[in-house]
Design a protein around this nucleic acid. Structure first.
Lengths: 363, 363
DNA sequence: ACCGTTACCGTAAACGTTTCCATATAGTGA
DNA sequence: TCACTATATGGAAACGTTTACGGTAACGGT
C-alpha cells in the first residue's frame, strides 16, 4: 500500500540470501538468444511496435509466453522517457473514503490493463512537494492525487508537466492546463445536509470534524463552509467555539469529539459529522452519554460508506458517488495521456441517503 | 496501495507531457560534477561506505542536501543485487484486518527508515507464484506475506531464497529455513469463542464466514476448525449444511449470510462470525429480521477492529494483537536480513473482548 | 538494369546507478 | 632511503531495457 521516499542512507551490514541464479530472472537477452533474433527486435515485439513481421512477432511472443518472461520494470523505467505507469498519490492515513475510492480506481485501471503505483503521504507533509519528488523517478505518464487542500498545489504544481487529476478538491481556480479535477460539491452538500436538519425543525446544530483546529469562518473544509452558510441563511449564526468540534476521520476521534461537543453544548438537537466514521463514533458516544438517536439528537454523516448501511440505527448520510468519481478520473486521465486535450473540472452529484438517525426535533 | 503485475503489451499512442528538463532530475553525475569528485566517490558517500575521507564525505553530503538530490531508485534496483526495499504482499481485496496490520507494519518500517513496497494480489490468484514474479525485479531484501493458505506456499516458495515472513498462517510444518511465521492461534481462538458461547449455555450455535464454499469438516479455516472442535468436545456435532454459512470478509456479505443462516436455522441462539465486519453485518441483519441481540441471539466476532468498539450493541470479539504481530514480523525480518539466523514460528496471544452482544441463553 | 521504396531487422548508445579494479598519495617500519 | 601497507579516489564495466540509426533484401516502376 505504500512507497516511501527513498532514503539516502542505508543500513550497512551483510545481506543474506538472494534469488537463485537463472531460476527466476529471464532477460530480454535470453529471449533474443533463444529466438535467434536480436534484442532490438524482441523489444519491438514487447512494445508492440510496427516494423516487425507478423511471423517473427508470433514466434517471439510464443517464446515469451512459454518462458513466462516479463520485462524488468526497473530497467524499463530507467530508460523510458515516460514509463507505462500511472502514479496515485494518496494523502492521509486512515481515511476510509480514500481507501474506498482508491479501490475503485484500482479495479478500473486493472480493467484497462494499466499499471499503477500508489504512494501514501502523511497529512502533515508538504504533500505535493514530497510527492513530486517521490514519483519523479518513476516517470509516470500521469498522476492522480487523492485529497489535499488546494493551497498545497498552488506553488508546487508548476513543476509537473504531466496529465494529472485531482480528486476531492476543485482545482478550477488554479488554472493549470494539465490538472483536471473531480469532486463532490462539498459546499453544496454541506448546505444540503444542514438544510435537511433545518427542515426537520432543528436549530441547535453542531458540527463534527475537519481536523484543522481552525475554529473560525475561514475554515477550509467545503462541507463546513456550506453547513455554516445554510445556517446563516436561516439567520442562525454558527458559533465555532461552542458548536464545532474538530476531529480526524476516524470513529475513535469522532467518539471523543462528540463527547466533548455534547458535554459543552448539551442543548444541541442535531449533529452533522463530516464523515461516516466520525458519525459512527458519535452514534456510540451519544448512546453512552444517554442521548437517544434520533429521539434526542439527530445525526447525519457524510460519504455513504458501506458501514453506514449496517449501523444501528442506520445512518443518514450524504453519499458521494465513488464509482463515478473514480470512472471520470481514470477516463479523463487516460484520455489526456493518449490524446492530449484540455483539463476538465467537474462536480459529481451527491445523493442523500435516508436513515434512522434523523428525526424531527422534539417540541 | 497497489502495484500490478507488469503487463507485456502497452497501449501504443503518443504521450503528452513530461518533466521539464533539469528542473526535477538531478543525477549522481550532477553531484559529481558540482563537487569535483567522481561518480564512484559520490556513490560511496550515498551508500555510507567506509573508503571515503571524513572531509569529502561532508562536502559531498552538503551538496546532496542543498540540491535535494535523491538517487534514482530504478537505476539502483537495476544495478543492485539486492535492493534496499522490503516487499509486502497482501492477499485479498477488502480485508479490513489486513489493512489494519499493514498500517502497523508501515508505521514500524517508517520508524526504522526502511523502504517498503506493497503489492496486492487477488484472492483467486495462484498467489505466491504471481507474487514472486511480481516482486522478482524489485529484488527486495525480504518479503512479508500477509495472508494466504499454507498450501499455496508449499510448492512455490522454494523459488525464493530470501528472508521472508508469513503473517496469519503458521508455516512451521513447511520447514523452509528462510520463512518465519507469526499468527494468532486461530484454532485455539475459534475454540475459545465457541467455549465462551457454550459457557453461556448456548448449544445451538451457527458459524458465519470462511469463503471457501467448503461445507465440510475439512475446512481450511483454523477458526472454524477450532469452533467445530469445541462443539464436538461437548458432544454437539456441527452440521455444516444447516448451521454454517460461508461469506467473504465484509459487512455486506455478513448481512446476507446472516439472513440466510437464520432463515434456515431460526432456532440458533448464538452466532460466531469469523471477522468483525461479518459480525457487524450480522448485527444489522438480526435487527432487520426482528431478532434482538443479545436477548434472542448472541453474536461474537473476530479481529477486534476499532469499529467493533463503536457498534451498537458493542461487539464481543476475539482481539488479534496486531501491534505485536506487526512488531514481531518486522523485527524478525530485519534481523534476519542483517544477521541471518534461523526462521522462527510463533503464535501470538489473542484476547477476548467483552461486549454487549453476548448474553446467557434464554431458558 | 537501375534506382527508390518499403519492410524488416541488427547494432550500439544511453538511462543512473553500484562496484570491482587500478592508481595515487601518505604514512609506516626497517 | 626503500619497500610496504593503508587510505582515498578515479575509471569503467555492468545491470536490462529502449530507440535512433543504418543496413539488407525484395520489389516495382522506369
Amino acid at each position: 500500500m505504500e512507497t516511501f521516499t527513498v532514503t539516502v542512507t542505508e543500513m550497512p551490514g551483510k545481506v543474506y540470501g538472494q534469488y537463485r541464479e537463472g531460476e527466476i530472472m529471464t532477460t530480454i537477452k535470453d529471449i533474443a538468444r533463444i529466438s535467434g533474433y536480436s534484442i532490438g527486435t524482441v523489444s519491438r515485439v514487447i512494445n508492440n511496435r510496427a516494423d516487425v513481421s507478423e511471423e517473427t512477432r508470433e514466434k517471439i511472443s510464443e517464446i515469451i509466453r512459454e518462458r513466462g518472461y516479463q520485462p524488468n520494470s526497473n530497467a524499463r523505467k530507467l530508460k523510458q522517457v515516460i514509463s507505462s505507469e500511472v502514479s496515485i498519490i494518496v494523502r492521509g492515513n486512515k481515511n476510509v473514503f480514500f481507501e474506498s475510492i482508491l479501490e475503485e480506481i484500482q479495479i478500473m485501471m486493472r480493467g484497462y490493463d494499466e499499471n499503477i503505483n500508489v504512494h501514501f503521504i502523511g497529512e502533515t507533509d508538504n504533500e505535493v512537494a514530497t510527492a513530486v519528488r517521490t514519483v519523479s523517478y518513476i516517470k509516470p505518464k500521469g498522476i492522480i492525487f487523492l485529497g489535499g487542500y488546494i493551497d498545497n498545489f498552488r506553488d508546487e504544481f508548476s513543476q509537473i508537466n504531466l496529465p494529472c487529476v485531482l480528486v476531492t478538491t476543485d482545482a478550477r481556480d488554479l488554472g493549470f492546463e494539465n490538472l483536471s479535477s473531480f469532486t463532490t460539491d462539498y459546499y453544496d452538500a454541506g448546505k444540503y445536509a444542514v438544510n435537511k436538519l433545518l427542515s426537520y425543525g432543528h436549530t441547535r446544530i453542531g458540527i463534527l470534524g475537519g481536523y484543522s483546529s481552525n475554529r473560525s469562518r475561514e475554515h477550509k473544509n467545503g462541507k463546513i463552509i456550506g453547513a455554516v452558510e445554510a445556517l446563516d441563511r436561516q439567520g442562525i449564526p454558527f458559533d465555532f467555539d461552542r458548536d464545532y468540534e474538530p476531529c480526524s476521520y476516524s470513529a475513535e476521534s469522532g467518539y471523543e469529539a462528540a463527547v466533548r461537543l455534547l458535554g459543552r453544548s448539551p442543548d444541541l438537537t442535531a449533529v452533522f459529522a463530516i464523515s461516516d466514521s466520525i458519525a459512527l463514533g458519535a452514534l456510540r458516544a451519544l448512546k453512552d452519554i444517554g442521548r437517544r438517536v434520533p429521539e434526542d439528537v439527530s445525526v447525519i454523516g457524510f460519504d455513504g460508506l458501506t458501514y453506514a448501511k449496517y449501523s444501528i440505527p442506520r445512518l443518514a448520510t450524504i453519499r458521494q458517488d465513488t464509482a463515478t468519481l473514480a470512472k471520470k478520473c481514470v477516463d479523463d486521465l487516460l484520455l489526456r495521456i493518449t490524446y492530449g486535450g484540455p483539463a476538465v473540472h467537474e462536480l459529481i452529484p451527491y445523493e442523500f441517503i435516508e436513515g434512522e438517525s434523523v428525526a424531527p426535533v422534539r417540541q
